[in-house]
Design a protein around this nucleic acid. Structure first.
Lengths: 353, 353
DNA sequence: AAGACAAATGTAAGCGCTTACAGTCGCTCA
DNA sequence: TGAGCGACTGTAAGCGCTTACATTTGTCTT
């Protein structure tokens, strides 16, 4: 009933950002044509396209993100939620993911959950609210409501860092259980019988759980009682790895080999072992998992499992592209993780008490 | 002239995302009131607010990001561009930055430039185009056009990781030159006279340049000729650090102390030294810079400079809040960086040839 | 040369919010 | 008692883009 013209910042103060309309005016075409030149150049004639692109360049035009997202109902943004960015575990994979996205003109939104399910759920909502067209998630473990939310919002996602043909979700990764079993086999082959495991909290972490299970598999296969395995659960950090090792060294009988859920814990364990005057691998063998850079530079270098970080990142991107385009991404992808033997693993010390 | 009703996806297929209007209808108020409840609750009566928030919760409403950004001309998103995420150097600072932002309901958009000025410029454009309300940048070195662009677009930014009262920009960080001089003093105090430096490319990196300069300062102050300083420039990576050390060990006279531009290079140098059968610090002292986690776990532990990562991140956030609110952020902030003495630095070996 | 069709471009209706401005509704106070 | 006021709430105009559909123009056919 009431007509109120609505002008906000009429007094431009130099902060002028050209808009589509301005470009159109300068190029002498309609806004639709400019938009098409930018988003679907093929349908515009060569002459017009040149004219328009010249104007775009001359004016330094860049589309307004909000407007574009609103009108197109698409943001060209993918999101990734990783447990942590503070150590290198996920960095390489993320880097590869991002590089693959860039090639398709897609921006990456990263969030970290600090291994907290609540925080992760919040981050999922946040990224979706910010218009992420697709999501990269680590591992399967999360409340069902997270999945139903993504389902309801029709946001495609892929689970990375694990391969599990059984879960009804598209995933790309490796078999954590199998990989850890291989590593444990290498340890057992060297005569170790009193083993210990330093792992992350396994409650909300299927990777940790599967790795732990792989170790149990290996022991069982050799007729060892998994009950004899000493386990310490702790958060991923060098300091915690150190502390866990100290704790384990006070148990009886002392383990001769300590397997760690990842290289960060292993690095801490290694440092602590040295601090306690233990010779690694003479007195004690230590293994890691992931094969991040520090695995190679600690003394002695860590025996570990090399994880295909970069391929997971790249592959995840491909899967998401397909899904966003409405195509069938195909089945989950299994990549190889290989045992890397380095100096921190040696033969079991003599059995003398 | 032509009236064309424009209905897109009329056939809703379960992917219904409630909109403001739906919430308003359910709560029996206007969309304006709902919007106010969410953005400026103080102006709404208690009863109405409760009614609305209940409806919001019941429907699982979340605002559409694009629409909100478009209408409010504000995205509640800050951007950060760091040279790299692949090593821990910037991770901690970024983490702190992000934590501070979260408390204000702001999302962080991270991009990495891989130490490439071109890429960084592109990232700046990209983040601004995506509506970043403010930016965190590392170091002063970048083409003037980057600054004029930000100026023109009225995007507030702060420079972190360096403190330089002279540059006419708000910055938060420490004096790289002074810090490196202190560390170099510690080295010289131990009798070292043949020094070497492994540094990142100094052309587009003021931190590297200043650190290098700090070393020269220390030498000059003791009457040493800076020309005798052997320098290797290389990209930040463990492998490159190793390679640089090897190269330096083939120069005559051999340095007795190798100072590295950061801990990553130092870790590589350390590994290489050991591989070459050198005793550190007996034959050779090595120092790092940054005090990231690996500094403590390598053998021997690295003497380095502790950088106030977290405080820089947190402080940068505060400065940007002020700037976005149109307040005066005050002058640049100088934080302390302190020398951390560990085992990799020892007295110079005997002068015997 | 007229009709058929394809290619290129223009027109204008929203996308889902925020917010300026305009009511509306008690109350207070002279 | 009624003007004045403050506290809320409603109305509706965009924000800058994309895109369905309409229109124009050009190219063939027959």
């Amino acid at each position: 009933m009431v007509k109120v013209p609505n002008r906000r910042q009429d007094s431009r103060q130099g902060s002028d950002t050209p808009k589509l309309e301005d470009v159109a005016a300068r190029a002498g075409v309609s806004t639709a044509t400019v938009s098409r030149c930018l988003n679907n150049p093929a349908v515009v004639s060569d002459a017009t396209r040149k004219k328009v692109l010249d104007a775009v360049r001359a004016m330094g035009y860049a589309p307004n993100f909000g407007a574009q997202a609103l009108a197109a109902r698409r943001t060209n943004t993918f999101g990734a939620i990783v447990p942590t960015m503070e150590n290198a575990i996920f960095a390489r994979g993320l880097q590869a993911f991002q590089e693959a996205l860039r090639q398709q003109g897609i921006t990456l939104l990263v969030a970290s959950s600090s291994y907290s399910p609540e925080l992760e759920e919040q981050q999922i909502h946040s990224l979706v609210a910010r218009g992420a067209d697709a999501l990269l998630l680590i591992g399967h473990d999360r409340p069902p409501k997270c999945y139903s939310f993504l389902q309801k919002r029709q946001v495609p996602y892929v689970i990375a860092w694990v391969y599990d043909g059984d879960e009804g979700r598209v995933s790309i990764g490796f078999d954590n259980r199998k990989a850890m079993k291989s590593l444990a086999d290498a340890v057992l082959d060297r005569g170790h019988r009193r083993l210990a495991l330093i792992t992350a909290d396994r409650r909300n972490n299927d990777r940790a759980r599967q790795r732990s299970q792989g170790l149990v598999d290996a022991m069982t296969a050799r007729g060892l009682d998994p009950e004899t395995l000493a386990v310490v659960e702790t958060a991923y950090s060098i300091a915690n790895g150190a502390q866990a090792l100290e704790q384990l060294m006070h148990t009886t009988p002392r383990p001769t080999a300590v397997m760690c859920g990842n290289d960060v814990l292993a690095a801490g364990a290694l440092t602590q072992a040295r601090k306690m005057g233990l010779d690694v691998p003479g007195d004690l063998s230590i293994t890691g998992f992931d094969d991040i850079e520090i695995a190679e530079i600690v003394t002695p270098a860590l025996t570990t499992v090399h994880v295909p970080h970069r391929n997971m990142g790249k592959g995840a991107a491909s899967l998401l592209f397909a899904m966003r385009a409405g195509e069938d991404p195909g089945p989950s992808v299994e990549l190889e993780a290989t045992v890397i033997l380095r100096d921190s693993l040696g033969p079991a010390p003599d059995r003398a008490p």
